[in-house]
Structure formats: structure tokens, C-alpha cells
Design a protein around this nucleic acid. Structure first.
Length: 492
RNA sequence: GGCGCAUUCGUCUAGUGGUCAGGACAUGUGGUUCUCAUCCAUAAAACAGGGGUUCGAUUCCCCUAUGCGCCA
């Protein structure tokens, strides 16, 4: 991409915790960071925040990485593209956090806390009873350094707490404007756990400083953490980055989109036959719009038009119907060989196809899939639409009779058709010619087109809805058509 | 419970101190000499409520309600 690094001062990151698969919400956060970086010519960084050792897995990390690649969100620096800023997995950066924590300890901006969990719990309960907001009393802040060191030497379990300076903090958010917080309500929070691993609020800030992050674009759920982080920046003598808190993606019940709402992982959508471009297009429009009536965007359009200024403030319900519509749109615009290639795994899964198709089969398959290109919204739907080309359909009497028709006329039409079809030259077995031939046939025999064409189509497909009769005939071939017409007659 | 954020058709959203409040999805209807889909046309559908400010507020301010998020 041209101009990729034309603005070295703009550096953004997507910093997922590998505690689960890549889902819609985080994918959009990644996308917005990506679009912002590409739009401005800045740098897009992937950083794995794996400090939750209990829940982080390598599988999740791989899933996130694969998902981002699938969506085409390529990053400039990350775990597999080590840049000038060291490692991009937090567990590989423990030494850095330690250094920063030490600095804060020395400057009395942090202190060791030896309080036992049970004591803290008791304290909390008492505060709750009194109806005040529970927060740490700051008991250990007053311990002398000697005393603290002695306890540490004795291997007493301890955490490191950050000293909250009571004051008004204004978060200047690019999307929400100035948001004011009162830090006296916070209480000294734990920044390093007893196992020496830092918690999110701290490690996240340290990394953003170290990696020279200029803009933090993340979900609104982090807005409440931001004042604490600003205090950390200040304690460390660093200038906070610009913040942009993007609105949540919601489920139909308007709560934060989560597993209980059904499919939320990128994998799920991929498996259901959604296209990466359609998903990117769709999620870009969740909480952002270009201010025009445009609905369909190429990657380049998005990069060109994206701006933080046009990000929404309120949450957006994930509307699968619109995704489907968009996906159908993208499917219709696919080249037929590409679409066919995408369909094959689904046909194999449905046992309609076993081996990879030969060249001849592939040509036939492309013709078949062409019939359905405007009729499917997701790739996975393909099998259910074209199964009758691969196996004999189930034919119900009910389906053979047109909506306003009756059994008698239907039988007459099929009987006549069975005879007539034998007279058609093989060379004329081509959709357009068949159309002329059959319309003539209808006219000569006093059939309304629907009285003949509906039963034929039903006989071929066993379905109430499908592609047109003539296109199907062309692909099925005369012999198969005759066979299926006769079978239909026997059902009537 | 405390703090914070939000509120335009069912959903995604545009928009302005005076607009027929616009578009898209979904829905209804009609058309495209066979169904379905595509495509086209068309209809119905919204400024949470209450106070201000103002000649006038959907738009600016306040309150309430509701929803959501974070902390615990």
C-alpha cells in the first residue's frame, strides 16, 4: 500500500486478550484501528495481552490471528512481525512492567500491599453495609519501606498498588468530548498481582507508552478505566495518547453482544458462508457512516472515507438481516469460478460431491451455481438449493400441482409433456430454445404456461421454489428430464 | 449501590434553530408473458417524556425515565 508509513507519528494498536475466539465486537475494534491507520498512513500494531494466565490460550491467539488475516486486517507490527519495539506478547514483556513498577515504587507513587484477601473482603462488606462505595482503605500505604522489605524477604504474599491522587480527571475523548471523573472515588488499585503479573490497566499503559501509541481506539467499555490510566500516564511522566471510545455492538436485547446471543465469532460467520468483505463492509457501518447514502464499500472506499469524527456515540444492534443482504450482494458480484470454488466444500459436506470435481464436472457445476447466484445469501445455502442435480429428488404430489391448478390438468400436462419432450432435438436442449419450444407447445395444446411449467419444474426439483424450468432442463439433459417427468406422473 | 455513557422509523443511520425529518435492511403491494430469487416501482413506519431558552425546537440547556457499560 502506498503511503503506508507516511505519518510515523500515528501509531494505533489492537490489543486483544487471547481468552476466546475473535468475535464481532473485537473484529470491529480491530477494523477501526486498521482503517484509521491506513487512512492516515500510520502504523497498525497487533499486541497480544495475555496476562490473564488462567484463561489465555495459544488456540485463542491463533484464532484471533487467523481471523484477522481472513478479514484482511493486516498489521505492520505484531507477534509474527516483530518491530522496533520489542515483543508483542505481554507475557514476553514482564521485565518491562517490572521496571516501570519499580520506578513508581521508588517515587512513592505505588506501594506494596500485604492485606489478605479475607481482610479486604471484610472491609468491603462493611463499606457496603454503610452504603458507601467500596474501595481500598490505603492501610499499607503507611508501612515503612523497611517494614515492607522485611515482609517481602519473608515471602509474604503481596501486591503492588497504585497511589490514587484525588482530583478531577478530564478524559478528552475524540468521540465523546470531555468526560469528567473524580478520582477520589477510586481507591488505590492493584497494578501488579501477587504473582508479579501486572493487571490490564497498568500493562496496557506501559505498552502504549513503550510502543509510542498515538491513538487508543477501543470499545466504550473501557471508558471507565481511562481516568485511572491517565493517572498512570501522569505518574510515569508520560503524555497520554488520544482516546477514542467506540460504541458497543449490541445483541437484539440491546445488551453488549455476547455468546448468549448466538453466533458471535468470526469463525461462525465464516462457516455459515459469509464473505470476509461483506462482514468488513457490514461491521464498518456499525457505529460509523460516511455521511452519504453509500451502503456498499470496497476496502479502498472504507480506507479513503473513514474518519474518527464520524463515529457514532450510541450502541448499535447487530442486525443479521442486513448482513445477509450485503452478503447476497457480494455473492452476486463474485466471478462464477470464485463462487464455485467457495461452494465446493459445502457440497462435499452435504455429501453431494465426494472428490474434487474433474474439469468437465467443474464446468457443469459452474453452470448450476450460476443458476443460484442470485438466490443465495450465504454460501452454505447452496447445497439445499442444488441437491436435485446430484441425487433424485423426493417428489410429492402436492408439490406437482400449481397453486391454482388441479390434479387432473397437471396429469394431462405432464402426460403430454412426456410425449412431447421425446420429439425435441438434442441440439435444441438449451434454455432459450427450450423456452420458445415449450411456449409454442403450450399454445398448441391450450395449456396456460403455468399449468405445464410448474409441474415440470417440480418434477425436476421436488421443490416449490427453484431456478427456472428451462435452465434446469438444459443442465439436466433430455434423458434425466424424461425420467423425472415419468416418475412424477407415477406419483399423481 | 457508586461513577460514566447513550436515546431519530422494528433495525443500521442521515440531518437541520423554520425540512414533506432523507437513505438502507426487514415488511406490505404491484410489475418484470412459470415458482423463487434478482431487478424496478410503490406504501406503511421515527425525533423517549416533561420543563425551559426562542417568534419558532427533533436540533441548545435542565430534569425524569429507560437502556447500557465500568467498579465493587
Amino acid at each position: 500500500m502506498k503511503n503506508r508509513h507516511s505519518d510515523p507519528n500515528i501509531r494505533v494498536r489492537f490489543a486483544p486478550s487471547p481468552t476466546g475466539v475473535l468475535h464481532i465486537g473485537s473484529a470491529r475494534t480491530a477494523l477501526f484501528n486498521y482503517l484509521f491507520a491506513r487512512h492516515t498512513g500510520g502504523t497498525f500494531i497487533l499486541r497480544i495481552e495475555d496476562t490473564d494466565r488462567g484463561r489465555s490460550t495459544i488456540e485463542s491467539e491463533n484464532n484471533i490471528i487467523e481471523g484477522m488475516k481472513w478479514l484482511g486486517l493486516d498489521w505492520d507490527e505484531g507477534p509474527d512481525a516483530e518491530g522496533p519495539f520489542g515483543h508483542y506478547r505481554q507475557m514476553e514483556r514482564l521485565g518491562i512492567y517490572k521496571k516501570y513498577a519499580q520506578k513508581l515504587l521508588v517515587e512513592n507513587k505505588a506501594y506494596h500491599c500485604f492485606c489478605k484477601p479475607e481482610e479486604l473482603e471484610k472491609e468491603r462488606e462493611a463499606q457496603m453495609k454503610e452504603g458507601i462505595a467500596p474501595r481500598y482503605s490505603g492501610k499499607c500505604k503507611n508501612k515503612s519501606k523497611d517494614e515492607a522489605e522485611k515482609l517481602i524477604a519473608l515471602n509474604t504474599p503481596h501486591v503492588i498498588r497504585f497511589v490514587i491522587e484525588p482530583k478531577k480527571i478530564i478524559v478528552n475523548d475524540l468521540i465523546r468530548g470531555n468526560v469528567e471523573f473524580d478520582s477520589s472515588l477510586f481507591g488505590d488499585f492493584v497494578m501488579v498481582k501477587s504473582d508479579g503479573v501486572p493487571i490490564f490497566i497498568f500493562s496496557n499503559v506501559v505498552d502504549d507508552i513503550e510502543m509510542k501509541i498515538s491513538h487508543v481506539i477501543r470499545g466504550e467499555d473501557h471508558l471507565s478505566n481511562t481516568p485511572k490510566q491517565i493517572l498512570v500516564y501522569e505518574a510515569l511522566g508520560a503524555v497520554p495518547p488520544q482516546f477514542a471510545h467506540i460504541p458497543m455492538i449490541l445483541g437484539p436485547d440491546k445488551s453488549k453482544l455476547s455468546k448468549r446471543h448466538g453466533a458471535t465469532s468470526i469463525d461462525d460467520y465464516k462457516n455459515q458462508g459469509f464473505l470476509a468483505d461483506a462482514i468488513v463492509n457490514f461491521i464498518s457501518l456499525l457505529g460509523w457512516n460516511p455521511g452519504t447514502d453509500q451502503e456498499i464499500f470496497t476496502r479502498e472506499d472504507l480506507i479513503k472515507q473513514f474518519s474518527l469524527e464520524r463515529i457514532q456515540k450510541s450502541g448499535a444492534v447487530f442486525n443479521i438481516e442486513k448482513l445477509k443482504w450485503l452478503n447476497g450482494n457480494y455473492i452476486r458480484n463474485l466471478k462464477i469460478d470464485k463462487l464455485t470454488e467457495l461452494c465446493i466444500p459445502y457440497l462435499q459436506e452435504a455429501s453431494l460431491m465426494v472428490l474434487a470435481p474433474s474439469e468437465k464436472e467443474l464446468a457443469r457445476l459452474e453452470k448450476i451455481i450460476l443458476l443460484e447466484q442470485s438466490r443465495i445469501q450465504t454460501i452454505s445455502e447452496i447445497s439445499g438449493h442444488i441437491d436435485y442435480f446430484f441425487k433424485e429428488p423426493q417428489i410429492d404430489q402436492k408439490i406437482l400441482i400449481p397453486k391454482k391448478g388441479n390434479a387432473e390438468t397437471t396429469k394431462k400436462a405432464l402426460d403430454a409433456s412426456a410425449v412431447f419432450i421425446m420429439t425435441i432435438d438434442n441440439a435444441d436442449f438449451e434454455a432459450n430454445k427450450l423456452k420458445d419450444i415449450w411456449y409454442k407447445f403450450c399454445e398448441q395444446n391450450n395449456f396456460k404456461p403455468i399449468e405445464v411449467l410448474w409441474p415440470l419444474r417440480a418434477a425436476f426439483t421436488g421443490k416449490e421454489a427453484s431456478a427456472g424450468a428451462f435452465e434446469i432442463m438444459e443442465i439436466l439433459g433430455k434423458e434425466k428430464c424424461v425420467e423425472r417427468i415419468n416418475r412424477a406422473i407415477s406419483v399423481l
